[in-house]
Structure formats: C-alpha cells, structure tokens
C-alpha cells in the first residue's frame, strides 16, 4: 500500500544543505502497524509528513495506494489527505472554539458533506471512541486522553485507509496513553493501516514492525 523508493529529503539551512532523510526505502502493507522510533532530529517526523502528503521528497518516489504521489497536483494531494489519510498529533490540534462534535465534523465540512449527514457521522465516530456523551463539550472541558480520542474520531471520520500518529501519547499520562493505544490498535485490527511516531519504547513494542531512524537513515528491528 505504501512504497518508498530511495526517498531523500533535504532542507536548506543557511548556506548548508541538511539531509533529514537519506535514501529511505520502505514498503508498508495494508493493515500493518508500524512504529517509527529514533532520537529527536533523526527524521521520523519528516518521514511521517511525507507519508501524509504534507511534504514532498526532494528525491525518490513515494507510491501511495499504487499512485505515484510525486505526479499529483496540490488539489489531488488535498483530496488524498481528506479521504484516504488521517492524522493524529501530539498536541491534539483541536479547535478550541468548536465542540468535540464540531471538531469531528471539520474534515466533512471541507469535503462538502451535508450538515445532517455530518452530524450523524460525527456522532457515530464519537461513539466509536467512547465519547458520545461528550459531543457537546469544548476541548477545554475534556481531559487529555479524551481530547486525543476526539482527535482520533476526527482522523477516521472520513474512513481513511492510513492513520498517521505523531507522538499520540506524548502528552498523556499512563492510563490515558493505554486507552489511546488500545483504541488505535482496535482500529488497526479492523484493517486500518497504522504508522506511529514515538519515543516511548513501550509504545514501540506494541507495533508489529519497528523502524529505527537515525540521522536520516533507517534500519528495521527484528520483531
């Protein structure tokens, strides 16, 4: 489902070119659960953003669902993010002025889904993360774990095939972390491909595959 061939990503820092990714080749099957680990600055977030079509490789090919993303227009990449790829962030990135349900409705709003259908689908998604009763609450009235579960509901409401999570438990206590990971794993078990960036060895251990990045190169750890 995901195929990276010799992917490089370099950034211009002043005069110097800094390589964040140096020739990454990687294949991820549908329904897989992959952890990206490594120290800060090793390139794991950059890799995640390239996988999410938020960033483009400087060199190399990225095929998502058998399509070469390099040849896609910005509009087509937006469409991919909208319907095929879900994002979960360390800092949740919920809009504080919207309710939980309002946040979950956001991607459907940009997709032009009718308000009535949006409401039922948002309610459905919140139920699947166990927060149906919190739909009318604003983010500041929710705990960290609840916020991340709202964010997950938002990420999956369009029915994506790939879920990218950037340190999803980085801001949560142990109990909430476990809840969130169990939720993600349950979705993974239902066929959602899951890629998690993490520092936490405990979280990484739960993945089927662990990819270790260091200084822009990768090695896969034996399971």
């Amino acid at each position: 489902m995901i195929l990276l061939e010799e992917v490089w990503r370099t950034f211009q820092v002043g005069e110097a070119e800094v390589g964040a990714l140096k020739g990454i080749s990687l294949a991820i099957r549908r329904g897989d659960h992959v952890a990206l680990v490594g120290p800060s600055g090793s390139g794991k977030s950059t890799l995640l953003h390239i996988l999410g079509c938020l960033d483009r490789p400087t060199r190399g090919r990225y095929l998502f669902e058998e399509r070469d993303t390099g040849s896609l227009s910005e509009l087509e990449r937006s469409a991919l993010r909208q319907s095929r790829i879900g994002f979960v962030f360390q800092f949740f990135h919920l809009l504080s002025r919207l309710t939980a349900a309002g946040n979950v409705e956001l991607p459907m709003m940009f997709a032009g889904v009718a308000p009535e259908e949006r409401r039922t689908r948002a309610q459905e998604a919140l139920r699947s993360v166990g927060l149906a009763h919190r739909a009318k609450h604003r983010p500041d009235q929710l705990s960290g774990g609840e916020r991340q579960r709202v964010a997950i509901a938002r990420a999956v409401v369009m029915g994506p095939s790939l879920l990218l999570a950037d340190e999803p438990t980085g801001n949560l206590d142990r109990a909430s972390s476990r809840e969130v990971m169990e939720l993600l794993e349950r979705m993974n078990a239902d066929g959602l491909t899951l890629v998690v960036v993490t520092h936490d060895p405990d979280i990484a251990r739960r993945a089927r595959r662990v990819i270790r990045l260091s200084d822009g190169t990768m090695e896969e750890e034996a399971p």
Partner: peptide, 13 residues
C-alpha cells in the same frame, strides 16, 4: 497551527 491542521484534514489552498 490551525492552518496546518486544516490542510492536514484535507482543506485545499
């Protein structure tokens, strides 16, 4: 951050 989020959620330019 909001703009970044909107784009990640599939909002076009």
């Amino acid at each position: 951050a909001e703009v970044g989020l909107l784009k990640a959620l599939g909002a076009t330019d």
